[in-house]
Nucleic acid binder design. Structure first.
Length: 424
RNA sequence: GGAGAGAUGGGUGAGUGGCUGAAACCAACGGUUUGCUAAACCGUCGUACUCUGCAAAGGGUACCGGGGGUUCGAAUCCCCCUCUCUCCGCCA
């Protein structure tokens, strides 16, 4: 969430930035500022009274020791009065803080200056593209049919075991998953990311820290008996490693990577978008996360984009990189690049990665700070993350784009990991 | 799941009602000493909010796992919760 300081010190700029995210509610911002100023007043009153109370309590202690019981009793009465007043103020303070917090949490992150204005995905800007779209013509088979033909992914079986959106990978299909995961992890660790294997369920605090709670509660599977949430992305556990942490500026940037399955309820999705591997309730993904110094975070964002670009290039997939417009960005992000690969039987672009800078928005929730070596001051760090990469749509594109007479031809880079060249 | 023990600052760990935001030691940082390293010695060494101030700086409040209570006053007493450890049971 935004810090109160950000809001009170730059109200006009904040409103202007929020408008880019199509968040137009100046009254809410005014209310926040008002509540904050109330909070300060109440706290000052309460603190002053408490100071008096503490002082008197000490005096009583002294009097009791020297046997001046009557004088002590007099003072006790005074303190009892003060206590009633502080109790009232404390209640007021708690109520004000709670209200303030509930409003603060409703404000999305401020978009970066480079974020295009726009309402929907149509207003996203293509930054660059690469690779060649293969011309397969009319005979191109969509991946869900190829998956069936080669018996590598079984959607019906998954439905039997669990439900729609939980496919079963079989034979070379399963091995391909493993090859991709290993390939992505090797690339990430070679780029200096430290590998983690986090829990796949998180508690409420973690869900709040990265911004899934309370806004997107419905997106996650909730294990109510223990009040845990199945992770929708490794971002949640990996970023929360740094919750309530103060690191030295010399340790930045911190680079972490993790492979995890991801679980998403995707309530309300339907139609051709969800066909085959296009949208699943459980899928595999390798995530990269960085904790960065605020002065470096945008430079780092570009590095992360370059890393992901390297992956799709090595896989030989036709891709494009989009800068998301204000209306299409997530609640928590300040700047997001989406990667899409072209899947040539479906004749459409599929999103395979989303790389974002959250600036201090998550860090504020996480209480993730760093200490500047030079002046010893603590500041909120910046957090970034990106998919590198999400598997299902990569597999969809690979199957469709690489279909040949002899079967599905694997990209060179995957052959050592998979142990075969063709799915046939 | 049953029984018991515990949770204090970066770490170890003292502290059972006031002089304790918290001893001591270790680590870390700054300095003195030193040919260098080490040792020794001196100093610094939590976080958040807030008030005064242009600032430098100074003051206040809160925090000893979390929440509530007793008391003029709580790390210390009471209640609830969470977590950790040990033993038993179960088990990959």
């Amino acid at each position: 969430m935004l810090t109160i300081k950000q809001i009170t010190e730059n109200k006009e700029a904040v409103l202007e930035r929020l408008a880019v995210k199509n968040f137009k509610n100046p009254a809410l911002v005014d209310e926040i500022i008002e509540l904050d100023s109330n909070r300060k007043k109440i706290q000052f009153q309460g603190d002053s009274l408490q100071a008096e109370l503490n002082k008197i309590a000490k005096e009583i202690g002294g009097l009791m020791k020297s046997g001046k019981v009557q004088e002590a009793e007099q003072l006790k009465k005074r303190n009892t009065e003060i206590k009633e007043e502080t109790a009232k103020l404390n209640q007021e303070l708690a109520a004000t803080e709670e209200k303030l917090n509930s409003l603060l949490v409703q404000l999305p992150n401020l978009p970066h200056a480079s974020v295009p204005v726009g309402k929907s995905a149509e207003d996203n800007v293509v930054v660059r593209s690469g690779g060649e779209i293969p011309t397969l013509g009319e005979k191109a088979i969509p991946h869900w049919e190829l998956a069936k033909k080669f018996d590598i992914i079984d959607f019906e079986l998954g439905t039997k075991l669990t439900g729609a959106g939980f496919p079963v990978y079989k034979g070379k299909g399963a091995k391909l998953q493993r090859a991709l995961i290993n390939f992505f992890l090797e690339e990430a660790t070679a780029a200096g990311y430290r590998e983690f294997m986090p829990p796949l369920m998180v508690n409420e605090d973690s869900g709040f820290g990265t911004g899934q709670l309370p806004d997107k509660e419905g997106q996650m599977y909730h294990v109510t008996i223990d009040n845990f949430y199945l992770i929708p992305t490794a971002e949640v556990p990996v970023t929360n490693i740094f919750r309530d942490v103060i690191v030295s500026s010399s340790e930045l940037p911190i680079k972490a990577t993790a492979y995890t399955p991801c679980f998403r309820r995707e309530a309300g999705s339907y139609g051709k978008d969800v066909r085959g591997l296009n949208r699943l309730h459980q899928f595999d993904k390798v995530e990269i996360v960085q904790v960065a110094h605020p002065s470096k975070s945008y430079e780092i964002l570009e590095q992360m984009v370059a890393h992901v670009e390297g992956l799709v290039k090595k896989l030989g997939l036709p891709y494009r990189i989009l800068r998301l417009c204000g209306g299409d960005m997530s609640f928590t992000s300040a700047l997001t690049y989406d990667f899409e690969v072209f899947s040539s039987a479906q004749q459409r672009w599929l999103e395979v990665s989303s790389v974002s800078n959250f600036e201090s928005f998550q860090a504020n929730r996480l209480k993730l700070r760093f200490r500047e070596e030079a002046d010893k001051k603590t500041m909120l760090a910046h957090t970034l993350n990106g998919s590198a990469l999400a598997l299902p749509r990569i597999v969809a594109a690979l199957l469709e784009n690489n279909q040949t007479e002899k079967g599905i031809k694997l990209p060179e880079v995957l052959v050592p990991f998979a142990g075969f060249e063709y799915i046939d």
